[in-house]
Design a protein around this nucleic acid. Structure first.
Lengths: 208, 208
DNA sequence: GACGAGATCGGTGGGATTGTTG
DNA sequence: ACCAACAATCCCACCGATCTCG
């Protein structure tokens, strides 16, 4: 066995070409490159685990902060009205404000109890505000999963049950199978990389 | 960067497809698979500059071209973001600065809190700066462990739980299971043997 | 691949701390 | 016995995704 390095996007592309569950990198590449296998054994290493440790779960810490940004609450019509679909609620058509500062003050937004919905909306607005910065900040990722991608399949292939969701009015998809604490983390990391101020970042994270 | 394992013959086949001297595995595979590089390359300028994304109406221009991956867009009632295809693309190698002096001033680098990450990056750049000197300096070692080797297994066999890591864009692997102090030591010893000035060595060690 | 959301808890990686050696 | 240098155990914070609950 030999080891080679691949840039992340290339790796994801290759992974996404998996046809059979459990295929190795070699299997996939052989198919793509049309190179037939030689007849020899290939072993797969199994990782062993460590005894576990104490669990301190601090992913969800609540600190109430006031948003430092003073903005008008008036919802500004954005070019594209977005459709919020919920099984429970009645809200169907809403218009997202043009800036996050406004979004998090928006009445409809604040009334939402479903954090995934807020999560997606925040991302949508962040993209609208600055597509380029958003673009380059989407490389944030967890230990195994990637958080953003331009296709559902890319996210699916980097983890199991990631529950990808499309971000409205955006070429991006996000992972959704996370607790609220992690959703806040993702927003925090993303905004930090996009260059937002600490204060605004806090306010937005808090709003989920 | 991601690492994958390939069966030997497949590896040899891919290596044999090298067209330009010094091509990386990614370069070769991109050509063979017809996957273009994404332009992102976050070569964050050393001398600062993160636009504070407060202002909105900036142009929405998409420049990232994607691989053959199918992007499934959800039908939106209104005009979806337009993806402009670009032919231009160059960057494919590492996004690290070319010299340690720059590396330790780099914003992204300084923001990193994980010392292992910085450790690896420093080594990667040191190698890039002077592979030959680096080469001959890698013989430094501890009482039982060796610190550098060209393969993971070599390091594993010279100690228990050494947590070897591959140094990007380099044929080397390093030991990682050390406290920060020792990481500094290793850098210090290495750079000393490579002939760097005391001042620079200090600055770099300090930066971890 | 079809119920969705997300808290809970098992897993893992970082590296300070503690044990070991000359 | 003590000290400095080194090794690697082990605790903690972070991350993933299963599983509970509405």
């Amino acid at each position: 066995m030999k080891t080679i390095e691949l840039e992340d996007d290339l790796y994801r592309y290759i992974a996404s070409q998996t046809k059979d569950i459990g295929e190795s990198a070699s299997d996939i590449l052989r198919r793509l490159l049309d190179v037939s296998a030689n007849v020899s054994a290939d072993l797969t290493n199994v990782e062993e685990s460590q005894p576990h440790a104490v669990d301190t779960n601090s992913e969800t810490k609540q600190t109430v902060t006031k948003s430092p940004v003073v903005v008008e609450e008036e919802p500004t019509p954005v070019s594209a009205p977005i459709v919020v679909e919920t099984a429970v609620e009645v809200v169907s058509h809403s218009t997202l404000p043009a800036s996050i500062a406004k979004l998090i003050k928006n009445k409809k937004f604040k009334e939402t109890t479903v954090s995934v919905t807020k999560f997606i909306q925040i991302l949508s607005v962040l993209y609208a505000e600055n597509p380029k910065e958003f673009d380059s900040a989407t490389d944030i990722k967890g230990r195994k999963r990637i958080y953003f991608a331009k296709s559902e399949s890319e996210l699916l292939s980097a983890g199991s049950t990631t529950k990808p969701r499309h971000i409205e009015n955006t070429p991006y998809w996000v992972i959704t199978n996370t607790n609220t604490g992690r959703k806040r983390n993702i927003i925090t990391q993303l905004m930090a990389e996009m260059g937002y101020t600490h204060a605004l970042i806090d306010a937005v994270s808090q709003s989920i």
